[in-house]
Design a protein around this nucleic acid. Structure first.
Lengths: 216, 216
DNA sequence: CGAGCGCTTGACCGGCGTCAACACCCGTGG
DNA sequence: CCACGGGTGTTGACGCCGGTCAAGCGCTCG
């Protein structure tokens, strides 16, 4: 299930040609002829995240919520539906998000007929797998301090590398497998040590004031 | 780098047709004509694991070893080379292992020309990604006891579901992100509680005597 | 038979979970 | 405009799980 609110003002195919992040997305290599193949459909689809952040959630054996990854603009949601026509995990927006929907049938057709998209698809699979492994190796390893610091580095804004985005403390806990109180404590400690500085009063945006301190 | 010793007695293409695990592997859907396309090459390749177990390892930020996944017969090694012509992590056999090597150029050619292989490839990507997410959600969550129990369940022998395989204690620690002494303690506790029974004296094979106890 | 390696077990201690109180932000309604 | 209440983030006290260090045991192999 992908309960993302789709920006309904943005539909049809014409905008794809002028998409602001077209160089990051699945359709980056499509030419005018390929665009002709795209038709609106309502079935299962694959999504490209345009804006915002989305958490991939699955239930653990003991019923708690486990966040396996966070997707950011340019990432693909629901790629697995291409292979199995089912989604493996739940995708929930962490902030207001916008996605492009690509109908499954269209993608199947293009993947067989467009070598460019075929290659792009491979890259997206590879990126998703690498992200998953990175997430495990970087964020779920070591002390609580190391995990929070690693998350701060991973969630840097691509446009403003000095700024990083955090989330609700219990979401951060589900990402790092630590309790929300510990998350809060470690953030406070990093602020005290001069590694971070809060940008707002909700604890969502921080300035990275000492990058070296975060890296160890 | 994939330092797997390849069973040199097994080479050429003729054996593929009679491979005992052909229904599990990448080439399961190739027909006689497709086999004609395969030639021996020496370049980068993708591997299908025939026998044994392989750990996927990457270095963490602080230099320690982190095992991101364990591959078992039928799994594919080095799929990422298809997209980037590089390997993302190191693959090291945990026990004596046998692999099929599939040259990259061959796979690229077939992936474009053989719809059957193309579909099979998608499934392998999807399986790898699901395995990665499962590994994170099942094995790196909860108490040390829960992690060891989850590993025992995941490492059951497909042919003998009552038997499970363990590894060197420090490898298990690198999989579960706990120390080897804790691994040892928890295994002992599970044996004491009647959930497991050792099959050998090296601590590698155990009989599952109480499955329900392991599941919670 | 002895050396060496890996597994186990024990004692101790620190980090993190638990429970609880408190502070702060924000929306609601008087 | 302020009073109130709920939700979320922070901070404190305390106890336990798991990390650390060390000793002991049982294999395996020379």
């Amino acid at each position: 299930m992908i309960p993302i609110k789709i920006d309904s003002a943005w539909k049809g195919t014409s905008d794809c040609r002028n998409c602001g992040i077209r160089d990051m997305v699945l359709f980056a290599d499509l030419n005018e002829q390929d665009f002709g193949e795209i038709q609106g459909e309502t079935a299962l689809g694959v999504f490209t995240l345009r804006k915002g952040m989305v958490k991939l959630v699955r239930a653990t054996a003991d019923g708690r919520e486990r966040i396996v990854r966070v997707l950011r603009p340019g990432d693909v949601i629901g790629l697995e539906a291409l292979a199995t026509a089912r989604y493996d995990s739940e995708a929930i927006p962490l902030v207001e998000a916008q996605v492009c929907r690509i109908p499954l049938a269209v993608l199947h057709h293009l993947s067989a007929n467009s070598p460019r998209l075929h290659k792009r698809l491979m890259q997206k699979w590879q990126q998703a797998l690498k992200d998953a492994d990175d997430w495990l190796a970087d964020l779920n390893f070591g002390s609580a301090r190391q995990r929070v610091a690693a998350l701060a580095l991973k969630m840097r804004d691509p446009d403003q590398p000095g700024i990083t985005s955090f989330f609700a403390r219990d979401d951060m806990g589900a990402m790092l497998d630590i309790k929300l109180e510990t998350v809060s404590r470690e953030i406070s400690a990093l602020v005290r040590d001069g590694a971070l500085k809060p940008c707002d009063k909700q604890g969502r945006r921080y300035e990275i004031t000492n990058e070296a301190l975060l890296m160890r």
